[in-house]
Simulated assay, not measured.
Amino acid sequence: MSQTIEVLIVEDDVRIAEIHRRFTDKVEGFTVVGTAITGEQAKEWIELVKPQLVLLDVYLPDMKGTDLVTFIRHHVPDTDVIMITAASEVEVVQRALRGGVFDYIVKPLMFERFKESLENYRNKVEKLKQSQQLSPEQIESLWNRRTQGESIHIEHSPKGIDPLTLKKILQCVLTMEYNGITAEMLSKESGVSRSTARRYLEYLISQKRIYAELIYGNVGRPERRYFPISS
């Protein structure tokens, strides 16, 4: 059996931190070793425990989570980070990417998205332990890249789902990996109607190739945004 992955939760809202802890307990192979509500507390935990994975918010009382990512990279480079935050500023996302953050989950958090992220992380950790050398395909999969050969088995597409349109729509979603895409955006990008775009998107969800989240903006109603499921 694989070794349990130790997790540190860094979240200043104790209620949300407790949700993260409960979610983590539901995913096999992970255990929470501590919770920090400030950046300084997190530094102490990280230096003392050296957890394998940190679930990190961006907005902390004494520093930004992206600054903590820099600290982790300098002091405990073997520790990985998944950011769970409401932050959507380009600068924050860029710093997370450059800091080698494994995943970036936008609040409000849903369990399926959380579970998927942790399971993808666990699977990749196990892949890296299997051998001293990886095949090109295995290396590609570690960065969530897909080739046309990894596409949906379109020959079994149901009635009303055109294989070529399906492939085109899937590619549109994959190119919007980090920001996601709405049915309206996809309609403009692919040239199909909004209702057609939504039908294909929901079909891709049923095939477990993408997932949807309700994203809450500053004003107006939440929008349903679609994201690719990582390998």
Rank of each mutant, 00 (worst) to 15 (best):
I205W: 01
K43S: 04
L118A: 08
E18T: 14
L55C: 05
I181V: 13
K208Q: 11
V219T: 08
I105K: 04
V32M: 09
P228R: 05
E140W: 15
E126C: 07
G39I: 06
E11H: 14
A183K: 00
H74Y: 10
Q52A: 09
K107F: 01
K26C: 08
I181S: 06
Q132P: 00
L97D: 00
T70I: 06
K168F: 08
T85A: 12
R224C: 05
R98K: 14
T85V: 05
D12L: 13
T79I: 06
V69D: 03
D103A: 10
T85S: 15
V69W: 06
E18W: 05
D67W: 05
P158C: 01
L109Y: 01
E89L: 10
V10H: 02
K127S: 06
T165I: 13
H20G: 05
I169Y: 00
E126W: 03
V32Q: 08
G220Y: 04
H75D: 02
R113F: 04
Y216N: 06
R95V: 09
Y211K: 08
V90S: 14
V76S: 15
Q171D: 11
H75L: 02
G180N: 02
A17I: 02
Y59T: 14
V192G: 01
L53R: 10
C172Y: 07
P228L: 11
A183F: 00
L97G: 04
P163T: 03
H156I: 10
I46R: 10
R199P: 01
S135K: 15
W143T: 15
V81Y: 01
D103S: 11
S135M: 15
V27F: 04
G180Y: 07
F30Y: 12
R198C: 03
K107W: 05
Q41Y: 08
S190V: 06
